[in-house]
């Protein structure tokens, strides 16, 4: 989900885009989006608007960078995460 949001850059990613990229049901998507917002990893671009879009926060970008590092490390030993 965070990768899908990141791939949209400063434009922000809408729920439909995230839903298809992450291959999630609508219920799960809503649940995970709320969780990510609560953890301040993503933020809603304009909460007042009808068209919801999400952006990574600085904390989210750092988390994703760290996750990629750990992914490379695990891959080096043949461990799937």
């Amino acid at each position: 989900m965070m990768r899908a949001i990141q791939s949209e850059g400063e434009e922000g990613a809408g729920p439909t885009k995230i839903l298809y990229s992450a291959n999630l049901s609508h219920d799960r998507l809503t649940q995970y989006l709320d969780e990510l917002v609560e953890k301040e990893l993503i933020k809603e671009m304009d909460p007042e608007s009808n068209n919801r879009s999400y952006l990574l926060t600085e904390k989210g970008r750092e988390f994703l960078r760290e996750f990629v590092r750990m992914e490379r490390f695990s891959e080096a030993f043949g461990i799937e995460i």
């Binding site: 760290e66 996750f67 750990m70 490390f73 695990s74 030993f77 461990i79 799937e80 995460i81």
Partner: peptide
């Protein structure tokens, strides 16, 4: 590094490593 990766991902094999 493996411990850090385990804490982030919860993958048991990283803990074993």
């Amino acid at each position: 590094y493996a411990t850090k990766a385990y804490r982030l991902t919860g993958q048991k094999r990283l803990s074993d490593l």
